[in-house]
Design a protein around this nucleic acid. Sequence first.
DNA 1: ATGTGCTACAATGCACGCATTGTTGAGCTT
DNA 2: AAGCTCAACAATGCGTGCATTGTAGCACAT
Lengths: 241, 241
Amino acid sequence: MPMTPSSDNHDPAPGAGERERQSDAAYRRIKGSIVDGTFPPGLQMLEPELALKLGMSRTPVHEALVRLQDEGYVEIVPRRGMRVSALSPRDIREITEVLACFEVEAAERAAARRVAPEELAALDDAIAAMDRALEAQDLDRWNEADFRFHRLLIECSGNRHLIETAHRFLDKANRYRTLTTAHRLPPVYSNVNHAAVVEAIRRGDPQSAAEIHRAHKRRWLRELSDILARLGVAPDAGSTR
Amino acid sequence: MPMTPSSDNHDPAPGAGERERQSDAAYRRIKGSIVDGTFPPGLQMLEPELALKLGMSRTPVHEALVRLQDEGYVEIVPRRGMRVSALSPRDIREITEVLACFEVEAAERAAARRVAPEELAALDDAIAAMDRALEAQDLDRWNEADFRFHRLLIECSGNRHLIETAHRFLDKANRYRTLTTAHRLPPVYSNVNHAAVVEAIRRGDPQSAAEIHRAHKRRWLRELSDILARLGVAPDAGSTR
DNA sequence: ATGTGCTACAATGCACGCATTGTTGAGCTT
DNA sequence: AAGCTCAACAATGCGTGCATTGTAGCACAT
């Protein structure tokens, strides 16, 4: 069950010859289960239960849970164990907004500095993959390529603190990625915009890069609002806690 | 020694009637010591040593260290205990950039929504306090008020995820706050700009709010570059890890 | 004398146990 | 019968011990 099927998260990965700490394994596996939906929002689990399932003692599990709580994935309820945090429409919109903010900044910074050709090529690759996936109507592939594009774009900023934090938000966004993707229109505009952003970065035009991506994200936020309204409650309903 | 003199960090605070967990206390106290400079960058300490100093067992200390490592405050070196992370000029610039990005977004969002009058009043208060501190040439008071202003501005965004993350960065920025404040010119422009931003928020003008703050932050980043160049090495020297 | 290998020690991750505390259910009272 | 109180249990935080592992110092060989 906890096999993290096509898990996209960028966590250190088990490492090749290195042995992973149990605590890190617990962190990675629990987070993976939450992101890929194996642990749905609201799920409650006791520490001993988790420890048994993960085949380790309570100590590393406890440590992992505290870390996950720090990142907002779970809430530790005094006597009921961990509870997987809910993802309200408000949370989804807020996370998307923060991510948009990061990416606009990244696009601007990327255009303002000298970006390695390999990085630009990788961006092109991701866009090409999205195009192909779009034609084949393969949502999974499109998701993967879109995720890759955003990851790369952020990395092009050259700001390690931004990269670190934005990647954390990308992981969080993956919790609702499939949800929203399934309900959005065919994302043809995405690819056109992404290509335009890369073009602006390539010719070193920070103003355009930022503005194009900002406009794109604004459109996406509006579409997201529609999707959320259609999917659930009122446009600005739930609260997480 | 670990008395967190005028510690500005916003961590849950010991809580009144609530009893604090040892693990949280360790996290808070160690982080406080790092932020206020009691634990200078590069300092190495062993877990048993820390546990002794904090009057608790190794378990909660270990947990706290892992959390602090997640946030970039320390690095856990396999056999040498924790080491307080260095703060290179590059780190300082990057953190400042991310923070600027957050605040511009916050200013824009604040102007775009209905901000409670009390929040606006609190912002005015902070600006007034900065003015007074500036006249009295009291850097400590100015620092406190400036920190308060930025905190409040971020909170006005209404985006809880942005608030959470930006506050984490504010804490990080406090590690070098006194350092840079001591070396900057009297920050008269700051107050004028801050007042202009609040004014734009008050009259609900997102465009202006964002643009004014963006320009202000750009100026500050340039001044910061000068300070860093004057203080130390080359404009883009060190690397953290 | 210097370089290399071995040994002893110390730090760390994790398992386990204990004390604490909150919760649940049962029994009693009104 | 319903509500309240109390007692037993279970989860959790933390302290402690053990096994592992990396390091440093010493001795030996060249």
